[in-house]
């Protein structure tokens, strides 16, 4: 195989890993709670910035990953507990509340971290230059792909092998019944929202390490996240995996062959799927 094509495929896979981590959080929250968290992109930015500050202060990248993820998880948890639950069930207020929150996060981040593009320094031991079958590729990107796979497996285990997962899945199908069974649905909602925030916080640190963070990243990331879950089908984990893989490759090859239209291109499969199957590739009717 051509080296160039191999690298393009690898790029697509790296992108897909980030896309998956981004999309899985959003789709999880949607599946259970029917909430579209439009501050998803702002969470990403904030998680990345927190990770940046940790790396800057300690030089410890794994610590930054944990800190970025956990702080956003906590933040998301608090947001759900104090505000989001008040407007549960209302599409419009939920949408607006999360939008307003994203405005605030983006603006406060600008005040704290400034408008310059920042990037998390990945230590050399995490980023060796790896040569496989004659193709040299940054080792950190393999790590990103690995983290993506690891998160996918963990989510699958949580959803299908734990009691929490069973309750969540039941909640997706029928919320009233779950409450009737004596499961504390409120607690589950908060937990799932926190998990969703954890994932996007992690994505922020990962994305901020191989790309950069700057004002405006939030809306770009939000758009990507929405396209991923619309294409895959909202609420479907499998759908998120498939659409991340499709979009990753599309973006990678688009940039190589039609760079001027690369961003526009990612909307094409979504438009086609929407026209034929509005609920997305693996989505169920809402």
């Amino acid at each position: 195989m051509d080296t160039r094509v191999a690298i393009l495929i690898l790029n697509g896979l790296t992108q897909a890993a980030i896309f998956f981590v981004l999309g899985s959080g959003l789709t999880l929250a949607f599946g259970l709670m029917r909430v579209i968290n439009l501050s998803h992109g702002a969470f990403y930015l904030l998680g990345g910035y927190i990770g940046y500050s940790v790396v800057h202060a300690t030089g410890n990248w794994p610590l930054a990953l944990v800190a970025g993820g956990l702080s956003i998880a906590l933040f998301g948890f608090l947001f759900e507990r104090t505000m989001l639950f008040r407007v549960r069930g209302g599409d419009l207020p939920q949408t607006l509340l999360t939008i307003a929150l994203s405005m605030i996060i983006a603006d406060v981040s600008l005040a704290i971290w400034g408008g310059h593009p920042l990037t998390l320094n990945v230590p050399a031991y995490l980023n060796p230059r790896v040569t496989i079958l004659g193709i040299t590729y940054p080792g950190f990107r393999y790590i990103l792909m690995g983290i993506g796979v690891f998160i996918a497996l963990s989510l699958w285990l949580i959803l299908y092998k734990t009691k929490l997962g069973a309750a969540v899945r039941a909640g997706v199908d029928d919320r009233e019944t779950v409450s009737a069974l004596g499961v504390n649905i409120d607690a589950i909602y908060s937990l799932v929202f926190a998990l969703s925030a954890l994932l996007v916080g992690l994505a922020g640190v990962l994305g901020g390490s191989y790309l950069q963070l700057s004002p405006g990243s939030d809306t770009t990331i939000l758009t990507y996240s929405l396209v991923i879950i619309i294409l895959g089908g909202m609420g479907s984990l499998l759908g998120t995996i498939v659409s991340s893989l499709i979009l990753g490759q599309l973006l990678s090859f688009g940039l190589a062959y039609a760079p001027q239209y690369s961003y526009f291109l990612i909307f094409v499969p979504m438009a086609i799927v929407l026209a034929i199957r509005p609920q997305g590739l693996f989505g169920t009717e809402v």
């Binding site: 160039r4 690298i7 393009l8 790029n11 697509g12 790296t14 992108q15 994305g207 191989y210 790309l211 950069q212 405006g216 990243s217 770009t220 973006l251 990678s252 090859f253 688009g254 940039l255 190589a256 062959y257 760079p259 001027q260 690369s262 961003y263």
Partner: peptide, 16 residues
Amino acid sequence: WHPVGTTSDFSSIIAS
């Protein structure tokens, strides 16, 4: 040419 601010991963352009 590539679009401003929406391209984040340039590695495919670079690989080309």
